[in-house]
Structure formats: structure tokens, C-alpha cells
Design a binder for these strands. Structure first.
Lengths: 143, 143
DNA sequence: CCCTTTAGTTATCATTTGATAACTAAATGG
DNA sequence: CCATTTAGTTATCAAATGATAACTAAAGGG
């Protein structure tokens, strides 16, 4: 197995994934939400409940900056803090009702883009894609 | 084939890919190069020669902003313009000798991270991963 | 009970990035 | 050969992001 060649493929692959997801998300515009704030929202959506430290670590933002941006999201009533009764320094962050509605709308749009992209594929192609995703997910992407 | 479920998997998958590539690249710091400038360099490296319009389109930057950032990269002597003799409004952009050396260094570091990540996998795992990447690349990611 | 660590806040400043208008110069098309 | 389109430039301003210092308040450990 040529690991150098695999690395080359990996580079092209990740660059394609970034390209495709960029194209799929670029038209999605939410009023009064910046790019970083959107990433935070997306992270909360996928991983909720999360702590501020987790946001900070996973999105490579400093704690002060995470705090600032979260504050704006809370002011926009898109997410909320739920104090952890075991450790009152911490708190869990969840989407509010509003936030959930918003992110559902975003993901529906994303799914339309996705379905558009796969609409010409056969069932056996889709099956192969599913398996490929599973292999990468279990063997390579999860730590 | 449940396309809705496939979408869910796709979302988790892309989020994992972003996470992993973020982690692999986050320690890579080049002096006097901003994030956007690095993305431009990366794009040139993978796709050279490129035009300014291609940079602008693929990285979702306006032409004026692309021009500004490219100017800085040229001032840092990391890339250069090569006038297209067929159409003198256009020009191709390539890495300079310096830029090539720099990006080689970056990619070597990236490759070390990559090898570290796969070091415990068997040859048959790697073979599966390679095939999975190929399937996604040909059936899903390329337009 | 005190000291240290952890988790987050607030304020401030510099830098980066985004957006837009007004421009040049070359190509293209009738 | 003139008008329009294409490709890129320059300047300027506003907004977003990054970095850091000084802070609070709770938890944990001896």
C-alpha cells in the first residue's frame, strides 16, 4: 500500500469536500448572523447540548471571543443557556424554539441542494456512496 | 434507498471531514500570511496555473478583494503573474520558487499528520479507505 | 479554610475581511 | 471604428474577527 499516494488522494478529496459544501452552503444567508455565528449555530445544532468551552475548542475560537459571539446569538433568541446544577460555573447551550425552527429551515434547504446533486444517480450508486461514507466515518474520521 | 437518511449521514460526514482537516491544519502557521491568503496559496498550489477570476469564484471572494490579497502574496514573493499572450487582460498565477518551497514544507507537515492518523490501520483498511475515497470522488464530488 | 484551578465575562484594541464605487485597458462584436 | 463586455485595479469604509488583560465566581484539593 503506497501511503504517499493515499495522502495525495486524501488532499484532493478533502479539497473537493470543502468545495462542494462551500457551494451548497454559500447561498444560505441568515439575516443578522455572521459567518462565525453561523458556525456556532451549526455546531450547537449537531452536538447539543454543548458547553462554551467545547465551542471554543472545536471551532478554534478563544473563550472570550466565543463568549462574545454566543451572547449575540442569545440576544437574537436563537439559543439559550441551561445552568448545570452540578457545576454552576458551566452551562449547557441549546437551541431555543426559534433557533430550532431556523436551523430546520436551513437544513431543509441544504437537503434540497443535496437531493439535487444526487438526483441522477442510480440506487446502486447511492448504496455504494452510503457504504463509502460509512467506511471513512468508522475507519478514518472518528478518533 | 432512503435519501433522507443518506442526507443525515452526509451532514455528519462533512462535519467530520471539516473537523479532521481543521485539526490537521490548525498548527500550521506561516509568518505574515493571513487565513485568506493561505487559502489562496493552497488553491494555487493544487490548481496552478489559475487566473484571478478563478480564485475569486472558487474561494467566494470579490475580485477587488482577491486582487488585494494576491498583491500581498506577490509582494511576499510567494507567487507571480504570468501574462497570457493571447489575452492581455488575463494572467496566470503560479507559485514562485519560494512559494513552492514553502508549500512543499506545509504539505510535508500535513502528510506527517496524515500518516500519524493512519498508522494503526491495516493494509486492508487502507485499501478500503482508498476505494471509498475513489467512489465518493467519482460518483459524488466531481461535477 | 485557604489556595489553586476551572469556566466564563467584560472591555479594548489591532488586524482582517467584506462591500462598493470609480477606474483602466484589452478584447469582442456588429 | 465605436460601443460594450471582460478582467482586473485602486481606494475607501464598515464590519467581523483575533488577541489580550484584568476580572468574577464556583469547584476542588489539601
Amino acid at each position: 500500500m503506497d501511503k504517499g499516494k493515499l495522502f495525495q488522494q486524501f488532499v484532493r478529496f478533502t479539497s473537493s469536500v470543502h468545495q462542494v459544501t462551500n457551494d451548497m452552503t454559500k447561498e444560505i444567508k441568515i439575516e443578522n448572523i455572521t459567518t462565525v455565528q453561523y458556525k456556532i449555530l451549526e455546531f450547537i445544532t449537531v452536538s447539543q447540548p454543548v458547553t462554551l468551552s467545547e465551542i471554543s475548542e472545536c471551532l478554534h475560537l478563544s473563550l472570550p471571543n466565543s463568549s462574545r459571539e454566543l451572547k449575540k446569538l442569545i440576544q437574537s433568541q436563537l439559543c439559550e443557556k441551561i445552568i448545570d446544577s452540578n457545576d454552576r460555573r458551566k452551562f449547557d447551550i441549546c437551541l431555543t424554539e426559534n433557533g430550532t425552527v431556523l436551523m430546520n429551515k436551513v437544513f431543509r434547504q441544504l437537503e434540497l441542494n443535496f437531493q439535487e446533486r444526487i438526483k441522477n444517480l442510480t440506487d446502486s450508486d447511492l448504496k455504494e456512496i452510503e457504504e463509502a461514507i460509512n467506511i471513512l466515518q468508522t475507519k478514518f474520521l472518528s478518533r
